[in-house]
Design a binder for these strands. Structure first.
Length: 286
DNA sequence: TTGCAGGGGTCAA
DNA sequence: TTGACCCCTGCA
């Protein structure tokens, strides 16, 4: 992979497997907004950038070599060989079709604190509402940053969120999840560093001790932070697509997870992303 | 216009 | 195993 800077842009030449639209719209993140020219503006790790596909290249605007090396290279998972992953999980015609459809999806390595709160908000919620709540939390309690003269807001720290009361949280339209957010922020601050989870065998168990974090949310946090690739978050869409295309009948959460563990193995999480995008975009099972 | 179901699940009984 | 849960949107 070759990259260079040009003004306030980083240009990554001849990038394989990086479709900006699919990566931001496959359901793993909530803070990227599509612009009329097809680029995406968003905030991650305290920085606001614009990302776009230009032919075979990817451009990142409002950044520099230093941030690219320290933040974006990891965030966009640029060190990974997606051909290898795809070869590992392409076990059948269904999966090959889903991979073909979702070709260019990358799994982002996102911030743990933001993931924890975002996916607590996602429970029994709709994507537009989740985005709205996350934007409101950021606007009210995040830090101001600038991009091309416009104001953006970073996602607030757990430290900051842990000091809010239920009324303040409820104003961000999180509904019954305000209690979960408050309690989880306090637990997170008490743990000192969520990054400890990186090297913890019991990361999933620990995450499920947080208020509002069950098996699905825990798996999303593990997968979208890059801690684990073998987890397979099962939500209503994945349940439907697995039942319709693989089981040909109703199947329990446990059944599905045991099946994919053996079937897709260490890269089950990538299979989940291709299937999720495929199922949602084509409304499979609806 | 009004009413109701349902949504990236989790919790508590 | 089951029902409640904020509250906004879509649809009849």
């Amino acid at each position: 992979m070759e990259f260079f800077s040009e003004g306030n842009k980083i240009i990554i030449k001849n990038v394989k497997d990086f479709d900006v639209k699919k990566t931001f719209e496959c359901g793993q993140c909530f803070r990227w907004k599509r612009e009329s020219d097809g680029s995406y503006k968003g905030v991650a790790f305290g920085k606001a950038i614009i990302v776009r596909n230009v032919g075979n290249d990817v451009e990142i605007e409002n950044t520099n070599i230093c941030d690219f090396k320290n933040i974006w290279y990891s965030y966009f998972d640029l060190g990974r060989d997606y051909d290898k992953i795809k070869a590992c999980i392409a076990k059948d015609d269904i999966m090959r079709e889903a991979i073909k459809f979702g070709n260019g999806i990358r799994l982002l390595k996102q911030d743990l604190e933001e993931l924890l709160i975002s996916f607590i908000i996602s429970a029994n919620n709709t994507i537009p509402r989740i985005s709205k709540s996350i934007d409101m939390l950021s606007q009210n309690y995040g830090r101001r940053i600038y991009l091309k003269g416009d104001i953006y807001y970073t996602f607030p720290s757990l430290e900051r969120l842990s000091k809010l009361n239920l009324d303040e949280l409820s104003k961000c339209k999180v509904g019954f999840r305000s209690k979960y957010i408050m309690e989880s922020a306090i637990i997170g601050v008490r743990m000192k560093y969520l990054t400890m989870l990186q090297s913890d065998e019991k990361a999933r168990e620990i995450l499920m001790k947080f208020s509002g974090v069950g098996p699905k949310v825990a798996d999303c946090i593990l997968l979208f932070s890059g801690i684990r690739q073998d987890v397979f978050p099962v939500d209503v869409w994945i349940k439907r697509v697995m039942e319709k295309l693989y089981f040909k009948r109703e199947a329990s959460l446990k059944e599905i997870q045991e099946f994919v563990k053996d079937y897709f193995g260490e890269y089950a999480g990538f299979a989940q992303q291709y299937l999720f995008y495929y199922a949602r975009e084509n409304k499979i099972g609806v």
